[in-house]
Design a protein around this nucleic acid. Structure first.
Lengths: 111, 111
DNA sequence: TTATCTAATCGTATATTTGCGATATAAGAT
DNA sequence: ATCTTATATCGCAAATATACGATTAGATAA
């Protein structure tokens, strides 16, 4: 691959893609689902729930955090995570404005 | 990496992740956006719009098609693509049932 | 202090993705 | 039949992602 061409696209396209990339692994979906149900969750609980090693879970949490989908705070020797609902709202509204709004106009059959 | 552990998760988690993976690149977002606006589109038009080589665009189209997000038919020497809105509906409803419904109950502040 | 417990990071192996040029295929035009 | 034209596929190189064990760092307990 000569070069990464991602910067050649619009910021909205990159943002949507980045959010989608963050939720593009079942382990991260499972993490978010758990956080959504419990409102907050300790890292160790997630390690017990998921069929993955502690280091791998930690890596997935790091990705979700750096993508802005979750927040985390250190609580003594452990780490507490929760969902950043604002990021989900932003994704939802951009996804809708891009696809769901257009859908209403264009649902006629095609190829 | 010893093994790919994706099959260890639920089917819903895998389906959501697969859809997200399909839209996790700005080029594929741009393709879908164009198809949503025009209802259908010839491959060559997409190649002109995107800052990518023809072979790369073709590859992205293949991924979108095998993920079920678009349909394509051969029209003489060219290929016509359009969005499969059903796939978007399914993603939307699963995404909402997983996150947006829970959000209403759990929006209190946390970590 | 030393020991323990929790979580993050490092190092590494392997798998997958991204991208392009070159080639193949298939339909239409000459 | 040959020449375009449009698209798909192949083959390769480089970049990223996935996963784990080992190690490190930080807080509490003994």
């Amino acid at each position: 691959m000569a070069f990464n061409k991602k910067e050649e696209f619009t910021q909205k396209e990159q943002d949507l893609a980045a959010f989608a990339k963050a939720i593009s692994h079942p382990a991260r979906i499972a993490i978010l689902k758990t956080l959504a149900q419990r409102n907050e969750c300790i890292c160790g609980e997630l390690v017990e729930i998921l069929p993955l090693a502690q280091s791998t879970v930690s890596q997935h949490l790091k990705e979700l955090k750096s993508a802005g989908l979750i927040d985390g705070t250190i609580d003594g020797p452990r780490s507490c995570y929760c969902i950043n609902w604002k990021a989900f709202e932003k994704f939802n509204s951009e996804f809708n404005s891009l696809f769901n709004n257009l859908k209403l106009k264009n649902e006629k059959a095609c190829c």
